[in-house]
């Protein structure tokens, strides 16, 4: 029983991260139908920028700092990472996605794939390919106990931050004029433009927001998975599966999908097999597309003409 709850706790923590990644993917997909394969690498880039900000006053030793840092040195790093994510997202839109807007949808998706490789190469070039510890104000080893079940400060913080971000994003999209404009552009671009909505600015904003979400996922993932240029490979794949499961155009669906996938994985690994844990994500994608292609919370799939 204790083990079961412990599996659930692990699954929820991982699931929150998947959900965060899925949110960024869904946000972009809703508005532009572009599946951003560079999302994970954007997250990595932002995390490394945050890492550099953290290190700025450290003496250059081979192993600079321990796993923990205070809030006051972390907050500038977090701001730096979020800013880097947002700027990189918006820059992609202006420099790359917009100039290739004549390309087919598939073409634009392939462009993001190329971007992913380019960013990854850049990160390896600048920061090196080895594994680093990402200092974080919350401890991964300090834990809270409830009965026999253990949850670390970091897991708790990660889950809380994830929930907070989801709520904020939901409010932004559903309750503000900017959010309304984003939804309008997503639903009918021509009509939105005819009504005077500055679609270019709205798209750039969406890309920037998605970049910021990527950055948030990056700095929340890095302390758990350790900081490497390849740390988002697995969370990105899982985030993508979560997005499909929850519905590619539903923000709450993304989070729900993340949690369900995290829980399913953890239970599957614990009680059935570790070896097919990764396969499970693919299986879920296939089953969702076969049985309910619009996803759990997605609206029915319509071809946009």
């Amino acid at each position: 029983m204790v083990d079961l709850v412990q599996y659930l706790v692990g699954g929820l923590t991982a699931g929150t991260l998947y959900g965060l990644v899925a949110l960024g993917i869904v946000l972009l997909y809703r508005s532009s139908r572009v599946l951003n394969f560079a999302h994970g690498d954007l997250a990595t880039l932002a995390a490394f920028v945050g890492f550099t900000v953290l290190l700025r006053r450290q003496p250059p030793t081979p192993f600079p700092i321990g796993p923990q840092t205070g809030w006051w040195s972390f907050l500038p790093a977090m701001a730096g990472a979020l800013l880097a994510g947002a700027l990189a997202g918006a820059a992609f839109y202006f420099l790359i996605i917009r100039p290739v807007k004549e390309a087919t949808l598939l073409g634009r998706i392939v462009v993001t794939l190329g971007l992913a490789l380019a960013i990854n190469g850049l990160v390896v070039l600048v920061w090196g390919a080895d594994t680093k510890v990402f200092p974080f104000p919350l401890s991964d080893v300090r834990v809270y106990r409830l009965g026999g079940v253990v949850i670390s400060q970091l897991s708790l913080g990660l889950t809380t931050a994830g929930l907070l971000l989801v709520a904020l994003l939901y409010l932004l999209v559903q309750r503000t004029r900017v959010g309304l404009a984003m939804r309008a552009v997503a639903q009918d671009l021509t009509a939105a433009q005819a009504l005077g909505i500055p679609s270019r600015r709205i798209f750039a904003l969406t890309w920037g927001l998605a970049g910021m979400l990527a950055a948030a996922a990056g700095i929340l993932a890095a302390p758990v998975t350790l900081l490497t240029p390849f740390m988002m490979l697995d969370p990105f794949l899982k985030g993508f599966a979560a997005a499909v499961l929850g519905g590619m155009d539903s923000l709450p669906g993304a989070v729900l999908g993340g949690w369900l996938l995290g829980l399913a994985e953890s239970l599957f690994a614990g009680y059935i097999s570790f070896k097919f844990k990764t396969t499970l994500a693919f299986l879920i994608i296939i089953l969702t597309l076969m049985l309910r292609p619009e996803g759990l919370l997605g609206r029915e799939y319509r071809r946009r003409v």
């Binding site: 599996y7 991982a14 490979l233 697995d234 953890s266 990764t278």
Partner: peptide, 15 residues
């Protein structure tokens, strides 16, 4: 066991 790409091994620890 884990796969080389795994980022989360919490279930393995419980097991």
């Amino acid at each position: 066991s884990y796969e080389v790409t795994d980022a989360d091994v919490s279930a393995q620890a419980v097991k």
